[in-house]
Computed example of a mutant assay.
Amino acid sequence: MKSFTIAQINTILQGELVGSTSETITGPEELQKAKTGHITFIGSSKYVSRWKDSKASAAIVNANLEVEPGENRALIKVKNADLAMAKVLEAFEPESPVFDTDIHPTAVVHETAQIGEGCKIGANCYIGKDVVLGDGVVLYPNVTILDDTAIGKGSVIWSGTVIRERCEIGQGCIFHNNVSIGADGFGYRPSDDGRGLVKIPQIGTVIIGNDVEIGANSCVDRGKFSATIIGDNCKIDNQVQIAHNCIMGKSCIMAGHSGLAGSVTLGDGVIIGGSASIKDHTTLHSGVTVGAGSGVVGDVAAGKTVLGYPAQDSREMLKQWVMMRKLAKQ
């Protein structure tokens, strides 16, 4: 088990140490659940009053908050407690699962595949024809990489993930359990006789940039033609759907259960809340925020925040909600 003194943690954070504790810090924990030896964090004034009753030995605190450490307790004051706690979590992060061999004997690796230095390939993985794995790629057990796909160095692919043929994955990506990359887009049209549906072939691919993280059970469909594109540093939560020919700019965030219909374009830094849905062929320009549960049916200008179904400017929608509550009370 990892442990640190409060001074060692402050060396990591480079904050202002207030008070002291003789307790060894054995892990981080929520304010209410913390025990002796834990470090917690206080990032908002509404949690300050709870510090007195917490059993934590130390806390990371926003510098603008008025908090007293107490007996045998310490505070580390920082500019942003949330970001500082992320560094502490990284320091306490357990080691990743161990590979006894670099390439497990049950893995199937096509003779034409190019495997970079330091790659790890777990049990029952399948690596297809002309696949290229950059240096240090990690494939946990039961990952499938189909023909002509390339994965950049240092990427980590967790169990159950399937990356279909001809996809391009950047460096330093993380795909969690059961991610699907490059499945067919959802394309059908009524048949001429009106009695059935005709499947539209999906012959494009998927291109994913560097440092992209995709949560468990999320899907990125291949393009009908050309490519579905996810820009550098995008972060995608669990159970997210990204349909064919979508284009995401850099550093976009999509929360759980949200979805993009076909041919949606996101600018840089777009944030989409949980369970929000974006209509096909719409554009959300850079810096847009979409509230949770909203339904976007048209283009949104840069920097706007929209809410509701159909989504509207957040201030206008909040006014409508207030008026509806007043009417309900009459």
Score class of each variant (00 low, 15 high):
K250L: 06
I151D: 10
G223T: 12
G182E: 06
D232Q: 15
K224W: 00
D232C: 08
Q114V: 12
A150H: 15
Q171A: 09
S180E: 02
N217C: 12
I163N: 05
D135P: 14
A216C: 12
G249P: 00
G215H: 00
R189G: 03
L133N: 03
A216Y: 05
V240W: 06
E168V: 14
V143K: 02
I127H: 04
F225L: 11
I207L: 14
G196L: 13
R222Y: 07
N124D: 03
T144V: 13
I200R: 13
V143H: 02
D147Y: 04
V212L: 13
I151T: 12
I115S: 13
D192G: 15
E165P: 02
K129P: 00
G231E: 09
N238K: 01
P190H: 14
G116P: 10
I174R: 07
I214P: 05
N210D: 13
G170I: 09
S180C: 08
T144P: 01
F225H: 07
D193V: 09
F225I: 15
G170K: 08
P190T: 11
G215I: 00
T144Q: 13
D148T: 04
I236C: 06
I208W: 07
A183S: 15
I163K: 05
I181N: 03
I229V: 15
D221V: 09
C125T: 11
T205D: 07
N245V: 04
V162A: 03
I121Q: 14
N124E: 03
G231W: 07
G136C: 08
K235P: 14
D221Y: 05
D135I: 10
G182W: 01
V132G: 09
C125A: 12
I169A: 05
G170E: 11
S191Q: 08
S155D: 14
T161E: 03
K153S: 15
G118K: 06
V162G: 02
V206R: 00
I145E: 01
D148M: 06
G116L: 11
G152C: 08
I203K: 05
N245C: 12
C173E: 06
I127Q: 02
I200F: 08
G196D: 04
I229Q: 12
I127Y: 00
S155M: 07
D211S: 11
F186G: 11
I169L: 15
G152S: 07
A227G: 08
T112W: 09
I207P: 14
V138S: 09
I207A: 12
D192N: 15
G170C: 10
I121F: 13
M248R: 09
G182K: 03
M248P: 10
D221T: 10
S159L: 10
G209V: 12
V198I: 15
F175W: 07
T228N: 00
T144F: 00
L133T: 02
T205S: 15
K224D: 04
G185M: 07
H176N: 06
I214M: 09
H244P: 00
P190D: 08
D148Q: 13
D135L: 14
G196M: 03
I230K: 11
N238S: 01
G196E: 07
I163L: 08
S218T: 03
R189W: 12
V162D: 03
G116K: 15
F186P: 09
Q239K: 02
L146W: 13
G116W: 11
Q241E: 03
V156E: 05
